[in-house]
């Protein structure tokens, strides 16, 4: 059994494009889901009472429905309902954001709730307003505590971009499928894809670990 890795180099541009799309989709959905997650979590913790049940329903629903289903629905069913057709990349971005923001919201909520109540009491005793307390005392500590969980969420985000291949987003997984199908060399192509994903993902988890260890003391009260 001989392996011919020239199929990789032969399709360098095609596969390289896939890597770029993977990175772009990962970064973009990482940012949008983080931002949305913050908004959702703050809405749940500090927003009006009637907002809470809806938010909880949204978060728990995203825990129940697979990413694949959300992506497929966003790409195929949303146009029928809303009349707007999103190109694959944007459909994937919307779908991933909607799904991941729920998890981000839970991380934010857990982080904020883990800051000791004594901290808030001490700040109140100094005469700070609630807004100031959130902004200057609670969030800085909470964000440090959220780092490890966000690290693993980023890892999940990158892995979930591969599922976008199902709705024809030209990210690495999709490009690999195409090349493997045309060249009848699935071993080389998929092994290459595995290598690339590993090289992208491994430093992410390790890097977050490192950063966290440096700043962890800032979050301990």
């Amino acid at each position: 059994m001989d392996f011919d890795f020239s199929v990789i180099t032969g399709h360098w541009h095609f596969l390289g494009y896939g890597v770029l799309v993977t990175l772009a989709l990962s970064v973009a959905s990482g940012i949008t889901s983080l931002a949305s997650g913050f908004v959702v979590a703050l809405g749940r913790l500090y927003g009006p009472r009637w907002l809470k049940p809806g938010i909880v329903l949204y978060i728990d629903s995203m825990r129940a429905i697979p990413v694949l289903v959300v992506l497929v629905w966003t790409f195929f069913a949303l146009p029928i309902v809303a009349g707007v057709t999103l190109p694959p990349f944007w459909a994937a971005l919307v779908g991933l954001t909607v799904h991941l923001a729920a998890y981000a919201a839970e991380i934010v909520r857990a982080g904020i709730e883990s800051v000791r109540p004594g901290q808030t009491r001490a700040a109140l005793a100094l005469g700070m307003s609630r807004g100031e307390i959130l902004h200057r005392i609670v969030l800085p500590q909470a964000i440090v505590r959220m780092l490890p969980a966000f690290g693993s969420l980023l890892s999940v985000t990158i892995k979930d971009t591969a599922i976008a291949s199902v709705i024809a987003v030209p990210e690495l997984m999709r490009q690999s499928e195409t090349v493997a199908g045309q060249s009848f060399q699935p071993i080389e192509v998929y092994t290459f894809a595995m290598l690339v994903y590993f090289v992208i993902l491994f430093p992410v988890t390790r890097g977050v670990d490192r950063v966290y260890r440096r700043v962890a003391h800032l979050g301990r009260s």
């Binding site: 059994m1 890892s155 990158i158 892995k159 979930d160 971009t161 591969a162 599922i163 291949s165 199902v166 997984m173 690999s176 499928e177 493997a180 699935p186 071993i187 998929y190 092994t191 894809a193 595995m194 994903y197 590993f198 993902l201 491994f202 988890t205």
Partner: peptide, 17 residues
């Protein structure tokens, strides 16, 4: 550190070979 969907494809196409 691998996407599961890739592992599925790999198992399906590569393992038989």
């Amino acid at each position: 550190n691998l996407p599961l969907i890739l592992v599925v494809y790999w198992a399906f196409y590569v393992v038989p070979i």
